[in-house]
Design a protein around this nucleic acid. Structure first.
Lengths: 229, 229
DNA sequence: TGGGGACTTTGACGCGGATCAAACCGCAGC
DNA sequence: GCTGCGGTTTGATCCGCGTCAAAGTCCCCA
């Protein structure tokens, strides 16, 4: 494995706080693999035998219904791990994983993980911390869907894209608008209209570049449902 | 602690698969405590120093916004544990916990838990399994809100209340209708109307008793958005 | 350079659920 | 019994977002 890749793996919360040799053993000998956009890593119901580290690219986790509906429950990027919780769910992945941008991924064997945990309690604590953060994220997602309007969810998304909490800033949308719309639980048409309605809050869109006059305005808008759009 | 209580604690996935003395140490010496309906156990932002086992009653976990909005993210009952994941989130509870029916709870010290985990890797595996199930539950919640209509969410809720998957059955609503509505992400008025619309699918309501002519009909209704209500 | 396909935007329209308001019901207290 | 109160139902109305359809726009590639 390339030194940059190793460094990236060691920077994840899962692999960073455990002895190097444990990390090395988990990663195993099989190197990273490249995937095209559109590739399916696993599907709901498949045997859950491995999880992944993203060295490059984007992966979408979603649930599908028999009727063609899709609910995005997570978007993961470079430096993040996903599906590790599925290693403890009794054998099956609970959702689909699809590569949505050209990616390079590291596949980690689940059985290997379970063995390492018994020998290294610190690893278990890391996994618990990771799972807890993921839980918190999902709780926030539910809150967002349940009590924010479409423009507010977009505003919230934009806020999270920029580092700062006030002042002006330009964010580059990380992936297609239709995907963002899906992640935020709305249709592409609604996304387009809703982000347009943020214009008089100082948000202007030019292709994938979104410039925000004052992030604080957006923060206020997300927190107070009474603010006019 | 009473023998029945001890038995109940040992029947939870968290405390059932570890040595008895570890369970005993975790439970500690402070016995169960009773709470009135309406009591707040902790609030979003409070220092997360303990989690709970429910010996009797119901507890609601919800996120509140500054504007008075509330998003229920979990309802827990007798024999279940909650807030254990918060022990690994860096010190703060991410949501509120409110007792919604007269309850008897056991409070478990978080620091105690962290210590025990280091000495007993099996406990870590139990916690991971618990957290993973919770993750799956939240993912299903998101799916439900995103792509089911109000009547479908109610139908899904009813299905989960009855053991069987087909045939007729009478379920007793576990708590107030307004609370169920809230849990399902809708207003009480919408709940009332929506459950009324399930009448011609064989669902009739009499106060807290809901009789279902054929559960399979509801299952089909939840799965296919094309079925007429 | 021009054509085709994927993505995005805009428009018209309908529906589901929220909102506001009032009536209704079961129940505890006087 | 009446009264008051929390919870539920019903009614009228409104608005946000989904849906269907069409027009734009960008970009890849022949």
């Amino acid at each position: 494995m390339e030194p940059e890749d190793w460094h990236l793996v060691r920077s994840t919360p899962l692999f960073g706080r455990i002895p190097k040799d444990v990390t090395a053993r988990l990663v195993g000998s099989s190197g990273p693999r490249c995937y095209e956009k559109g590739a399916l890593l696993f599907q709901q119901g498949d045997p859950a035998d491995a999880f992944y580290v993203i060295l490059e690219g984007w992966v979408k986790i979603a649930r599908l219904t028999s009727e063609g509906g899709e609910a995005v429950v997570g978007m993961f990027r470079r430096g993040e791990t996903f599906a590790e919780a599925a290693m403890f769910l009794g054998g099956r992945y609970p959702a689909n994983a699809e590569v949505v941008a050209p990616s390079r991924l590291l596949k980690i064997d689940g059985e290997n993980l379970r063995k390492s945990i018994r020998e290294n309690p610190d690893l278990a604590l890391c996994m618990l911390a990771s799972a807890s953060h993921h839980l918190k994220f999902l709780v926030e997602q539910i809150e967002q869907i349940k009590l924010l309007s479409a423009p507010q969810r977009i505003a919230d998304f934009l806020i999270q894209q920029c580092r700062t909490r006030r002042g002006s800033c330009v964010v580059v949308l990380p992936y297609e608008k239709a995907l963002i719309a899906n992640r935020l639980g709305m249709k592409p048409e609604s996304f387009s209209r809703a982000i347009g309605r943020l214009r008089n809050l100082g948000v202007s869109v030019d292709h994938e570049y979104v410039s925000i006059a004052d992030v604080a305005t957006l923060v206020a808008f997300v927190e107070k449902s009474s603010v006019e759009s």
